[in-house]
Computed example of a mutant assay.
Amino acid sequence: MHFYITGDTHGNFDRIEEFCQLNETTTDDVLIILGDAGINYWLDIRDWNVKNQIANMDITLFCVHGNHEGRPWESPSDYELFPWNGGLVYREEMYPNILFAKDGEIYHFNGYSAMAIGGAYSVDKYYRLSHGLQWFDTEQPDEAMKAFVEEQLERADWKVDIILSHTVPIEVEPVWAFIPGLDQSSVDKSTEKWLQTIYDRLEFSEWYAGHYHIENEDNGIRIMFEDYDEICTEE
């Protein structure tokens, strides 16, 4: 079993298909998507097209929650919590190779512990609302989710090998990649500020994030987009 990782896909899985073919993957292999997979985007039957495409791919997707997609429980699909690699994931029986992380669950990948912490604020929120595009009021973790994450970290003595998030702690934001002309004072940074409190306290080895559509590494956090890597390799 291999654990691969990449950034946002936003409902376009052509590059993922190519990756699977090049690496001769199977559904025993896992590809982690660091948010905005875009699978639960329309929250209706239109999402079936991309799900059917993925169902025919030789890979299992493990998706962290992003900000441009609905939560699994918002979908009319029959998602259920399913035990997987030591934690719980959201899964549909019809699509067993499409898994969605539950924020705060600690998973075990080839002996390494990994926690998913999804969500972020959409800087294009008001553009989306004014142009009839999808926007999700559950895009950021709520207080109950944050409390669960912190409870889980307490149980783990604030030691987790790998963090899989969508956005990053506020002091690690790639400000050079921000959209030019966007008034940052209007952007809700509550998730990034909360992640900073975790970053400051947590003992971890690796931290991966997506969201910014860049590829960069700074202060122990790697932001990914269309690049790939393999993590948690068996010793």
Score class of each variant (00 low, 15 high):
85 N>K: 13
176 W>L: 08
228 Y>A: 00
83 P>A: 07
75 S>Q: 11
28 D>C: 04
32 I>F: 06
84 W>N: 00
209 A>H: 09
141 P>C: 08
229 D>S: 15
160 V>A: 01
161 D>A: 07
37 A>M: 06
165 S>D: 05
55 A>Q: 11
39 I>C: 09
117 I>D: 04
42 W>R: 07
172 V>T: 12
82 F>T: 15
222 R>W: 11
231 I>N: 02
65 H>C: 11
132 G>A: 03
156 A>K: 07
192 E>F: 03
24 E>I: 07
156 A>V: 04
25 T>W: 01
217 E>A: 09
159 K>E: 12
111 G>R: 03
111 G>A: 01
62 F>G: 00
12 N>V: 11
172 V>A: 10
225 F>M: 06
65 H>K: 15
53 Q>Y: 12
47 D>M: 04
148 F>K: 15
65 H>D: 15
66 G>C: 10
39 I>E: 00
118 G>I: 05
177 A>F: 04
121 Y>E: 08
212 Y>A: 01
63 C>W: 05
152 Q>C: 09
42 W>S: 10
37 A>W: 02
52 N>R: 11
69 E>Q: 12
75 S>W: 04
100 F>N: 05
16 I>N: 04
75 S>E: 13
184 Q>A: 10
161 D>Y: 02
60 T>E: 10
75 S>K: 13
120 A>R: 07
90 Y>W: 15
111 G>H: 04
137 D>C: 14
53 Q>C: 06
221 I>L: 14
159 K>L: 07
232 C>F: 05
62 F>L: 11
132 G>R: 09
219 N>E: 15
89 V>A: 01
111 G>C: 11
122 S>C: 14
130 S>L: 15
148 F>R: 15
121 Y>P: 00
69 E>F: 14
99 L>F: 04
115 M>E: 09
13 F>C: 06
10 H>A: 05
43 L>Y: 00
61 L>V: 02
38 G>F: 12
91 R>V: 14
141 P>H: 10
30 V>I: 14
178 F>W: 07
23 N>R: 13
145 M>Q: 15
34 L>F: 06
27 T>Q: 14
198 I>F: 10
168 V>C: 08
114 A>V: 02
86 G>F: 02
163 I>D: 08
164 L>D: 02
68 H>D: 08
184 Q>W: 12
129 L>Q: 13
57 M>P: 02
102 K>N: 10
232 C>P: 05
45 I>C: 09
176 W>Y: 13
113 S>I: 03
135 W>K: 02
125 K>P: 04
176 W>V: 06
70 G>I: 03
78 D>F: 08
15 R>K: 12
54 I>H: 06
135 W>C: 13
143 E>F: 11
58 D>K: 15
172 V>C: 09
148 F>S: 10
184 Q>G: 00
211 H>S: 06
215 E>Q: 14
224 M>R: 08
164 L>I: 07
70 G>R: 14
138 T>V: 10
223 I>Q: 05
182 L>E: 07
212 Y>D: 01
215 E>A: 01
219 N>K: 12
87 G>W: 06
7 G>T: 04
179 I>F: 07
96 P>M: 07
67 N>I: 10
42 W>L: 11
27 T>G: 04
2 H>Q: 13
7 G>Q: 12
110 N>Q: 08
47 D>L: 06
204 F>W: 01
105 E>L: 03
216 N>L: 15
38 G>T: 07
74 E>F: 09
132 G>Q: 01
152 Q>D: 03
210 G>S: 05
